[in-house]
Amino acid sequence: MSAADDPVPAIPTHDPGGSVKFEKWQALGNDYAIVEARDLPFELTPARIRAFCAGHFGVFADGILLLSESEQPGFVADLKIFNPDGSEAELSGNGAREAIMYLRQRGWTDADEFSIMTAAGEIRPQITGPTTCKVDMGRARLTSKDFPSGPADGLAELTADGATWRFQHVSIGNPQCSIRVESVAELEALDLPAIGGAIEHHELFPNRTNVSWYAALEPGRIRARIFERGVGETLSSGTGATGAAVAHVMRGGGAGEDVSTVTVVLDGGELEVEVAEDLHVNLTGWAVPVFRGELSENFLKELHETE
């Protein structure tokens, strides 16, 4: 019997007494608070999300991963991903891996391969180790509603903060604007907080965009920095790394024939992105828990009173 055929263990029940438990997880320094929807006594409004994720006054997180039992047959869970500014993200490569490893470790499933539903659609992970998994991210696209004026190949130019940038649009569940620079020295010299926001909010992108800058290191290996929509510069981003890897492959980078493998070196560590000829993408990396917590009565009261 394969792991996928094994009986699925009962999902743990929780104390109905009104306390809200969460777990803090991180993947390459990209940290999320994971919450199970049945534990929440209120809706996660944008204002509550901002208060929950706030530094010093909240739990200090790059976002919230909200897990709920799926009503769709064959899915272990539904996953909603929220940015710290209160907006909802279609997908997060790092957040998805954190949710995947959480589901496995907390007894939602004992299968090595399963499906979860996100706002970007189905994703299928494969557990590869105690802290690692490979995520089938689906097929990247070079055109999307997030860049409505874009050409078929997704290559375009924009001017922001007084500079002109040649970029590759990539849609991988969420919009990516990937920009190649000539050297690592040029990459490291970029003032991302100053220029990232202007590109994120550029008129070309009606739903805003994530931005990645990358430089080639050697065949099949790039260095990247990421400015995430609704977050700012981050230590890492799975979808940002994917966008940069796809852009690199489109320019002839990568290592392989039918499938190009790109190692993306980020501030928080390394991710491996497999890009097939049809732009089907697999993302491999790790995710680990940091701590478990329970929101205090005072903080819960504050969140209740927050609209």
Rank of each mutant, 00 (worst) to 15 (best):
D6C: 11
P7Q: 06
P7R: 12
P12W: 09
H14P: 00
S19G: 06
K21W: 06
W25K: 07
Q26A: 09
D31V: 04
Y32F: 15
L44A: 04
A47M: 07
A51R: 14
F52R: 01
F57L: 15
F57A: 14
V59S: 05
F60S: 15
D62K: 01
D62F: 02
L66F: 01
L66H: 09
E69D: 10
P84G: 08
E88Q: 15
E90T: 11
A99Y: 14
Y102K: 05
W108L: 00
A111I: 05
D112F: 08
D112A: 11
I123R: 08
Q126H: 12
I127V: 14
T128H: 08
T132Y: 03
T132P: 00
C133K: 10
D136C: 00
S149C: 03
P151C: 05
L158T: 04
T159W: 01
R166L: 07
R166H: 12
G173E: 02
L187N: 04
E188M: 12
E188H: 13
E200I: 11
L204P: 00
N210D: 04
Y214I: 02
Y214G: 01
A215E: 08
P219A: 11
P219D: 12
G230T: 06
T234F: 03
T234W: 02
S237V: 09
T242H: 06
A244Y: 04
V246M: 01
H248F: 14
M250F: 04
R251P: 01
G254S: 10
G256S: 08
V259R: 03
S260G: 02
L271M: 13
E274F: 08
A276H: 10
E277W: 01
D278A: 07
N282A: 12
N282T: 14
F291H: 14
L295D: 05
S296R: 04
L300A: 01
H304G: 11
